[in-house]
Design a protein around this nucleic acid. Structure first.
Lengths: 345, 345
DNA sequence: TTTCAAATGGCTACCATTGCCGATGTCGCC
DNA sequence: GGCGACATCGGCAATGGTAGCCATTTGAAA
């Protein structure tokens, strides 16, 4: 593998000149530049990014610490971040936190050791966890996505409570007064906010709010399925279920099907997070959709700003969700008194 | 940020000794080692991976060049690769090819410049494309996944033709004799193999094989939807449709719905690739499922072997798919003469 | 001849690794 | 007490590209 020294030797110039030609950091005569470029072509030289990053003290890369595994919802975010960064010739380190705090810390440390310029993190647990502490103590430019746990960092998420309230409003508008909830991952900031939104909406409408209507948090599809089955076995089972995220939604459907319940005939269902197949398969789900691409875009831009200016005050951004009404509540069957067939925020 | 020199100074030893303590590369007295470790703790020193990689000429990282964006099928593969690599303390560079040859080359070059130890690539086009040439010319350890385009590399994929043949067999077993196909991305090796499998099976059964039964390749969900609508408008529309991959399946459903056709009432549907929601939403799809986790696992291990021994002969691995029979062909309605309700390979 | 500018060379710090050679120090043995 | 054997560790160099600084060379203008 050719080095810059080889290029310099063949071009008959100094190391400095080759470097300056490569980076445009000072003027060189057109003839000299051509000699250098010819030598580069002849040797097939490509700069060693490691040495370059070492000297520049900047790697032109960002790390994404996210649970890309269990959460398909993140792939759109990653996609948007990748797209923004690629436009600026930055590369992406992807590391999977598996949503386990311990692993999350390891992953953040690994990214730091690789000297990424900044980190986008979806923190697993609620408050100042070790990984967040690590970011703060090492002054690593960072943006938190999805779960907003610390206002000392730049953060991007959605209005979780309000979105759930809109789902509850929708159900109440259709006449439902016993609404069950199958939340997402227990302990996550998003989960807590969404449960709070549920409680708030239910209280506002003055309808049933027994604790047995809220299932425990679900860690995967199957536990959500179990929760749904459990919900339908209580004394007065709900007439509608609200699923706390994409995996919970699939799980609830699986559980209901297993229990012999049809949606929306036996029970209505609304979900948090949309799917691109949701308009083609039955039951066509009524959901609130997150602007995943926007989240990723905003996160990437916030991070790049933060890298440029590490001392600017951190901002927390919440984006709007969209209520997409389809058929999973039977709203096309039993029309309510107050029709609210809104399609968008 | 502390450097190894700071540690050496505080511990009162040489640079060499600190390095040897860190890497266990030569014996040091327990007292000396303790002094070094104390100094590391005191300074909060973490080695600079860049300098380390530069000196070692190995980055302990692998690059994944894949279209993670448009293809959710790859997330399981990425997950498996990440898992295997994490166990060996290797990190992952993720770069998105967007399945565009030009971008694919850029991405491979970027990974190479970052001096990854090896690359896992899902090549977009059929034969020796520029990115594959680049890998070969620069002798980069590499494994090709999904689309098997060059036996000079290690490769991992599935039996595409055979899998499609099983789907056709299943349909024929149910009495279908006009079977349409909506293939995946045009030009991809997988697509060509799956079309070949379709043609072969159709010929073997001696049933209709007009060219208008094979739609053009679909680049996304919507183009697959258009293809499905188109298929249903031909003179003698098919009684069953075979979708060439996950996106095509969703697209076909969307198109059929738009055209007012119900599955399986008006037309049967089988798909390539399974979904984790497919057992809960209607129509419950009959599909062949790829062992994505295994593909990723095998790919990671092949790459690590290849890095260790760059000169061993390349191997091509094809894995078995599983036929999962559900309800999207109406097999639960009109039982055929020969019942083949097989659930697995 | 002096003066000046243009163009480029040379140098250095950045940082950890690793093998090699050399410099101590220590111990046992005669 | 002197000598060899060995344990332990220091010093050095090469690996790489960057970017700013100063020095140098060359040619042209004054």
């Amino acid at each position: 593998m050719a080095t810059i020294a080889d290029v310099a030797r063949i071009a008959g110039v100094s190391l400095s000149t080759v470097s300056h030609v490569l980076n445009g950091t000072r003027f060189v005569r057109p003839e000299t530049e051509k000699a250098v470029r010819d030598a580069i072509a002849a040797t097939g030289y490509t700069p060693n990014s490691l040495a370059r990053s070492l000297a520049r003290a900047s790697t032109n890369s960002v790390g994404i610490a996210i649970s890309a595994v269990s959460n398909p919802y993140f792939s759109d975010i990653i996609r948007a971040v990748e797209s923004e960064c690629a436009a600026l010739d930055m590369t992406i380190f992807l590391a999977d936190t598996h949503d386990i705090p311990e692993r999350e810390l390891q992953v953040v440390q690994a990214l730091h050791q690789h000297r990424v310029d900044g980190i986008i993190l979806a923190p697993s647990t609620t408050s100042s966890e070790r990984s967040v502490t690590y970011l703060r103590e090492n002054k690593i430019p960072a943006v938190l996505v999805d779960r907003l746990v610390s206002a000392e960092f730049d953060q991007v998420g959605v209005y979780n409570a309000e979105s759930v309230e809109r789902l509850v409003d929708h159900l109440v508008g259709l006449g439902h007064r016993r609404i069950g909830m199958v939340p997402g991952q227990p302990g996550f900031a998003t989960t807590l906010e969404r449960i709070a939104g549920y409680r708030s909406a239910v209280a506002r409408h003055g309808i049933d709010a027994e604790d047995d209507l809220i299932a425990p948090g679900s860690i995967d599809i199957d536990s959500a399925a179990d929760s749904a089955e459990g919900l339908m076995r209580v004394a007065h089972p709900p007439t509608a279920i609200l699923a706390g995220n994409n995996l919970a939604t699939i799980g609830v459907m699986r559980g209901l099907r297993r229990g012999g319940f049809a949606v929306p005939r036996d029970v209505a269902l609304v979900g948090f997070d949309d799917f691109d197949w949701a308009d083609s398969f039955e039951p066509r789900l009524t959901v609130v959709a997150q602007p995943c691409l926007d989240i990723g875009r905003v996160a990437a831009n916030l991070l790049l700003e933060r890298i440029k200016d590490p001392d600017k005050p951190p901002t927390t951004t919440r984006l709007q969700t969209s209520l997409i009404v389809r058929d999973s509540c039977g709203s096309h069957l039993r029309r309510p008194a107050s029709p609210n067939r809104d399609r968008n925020a």
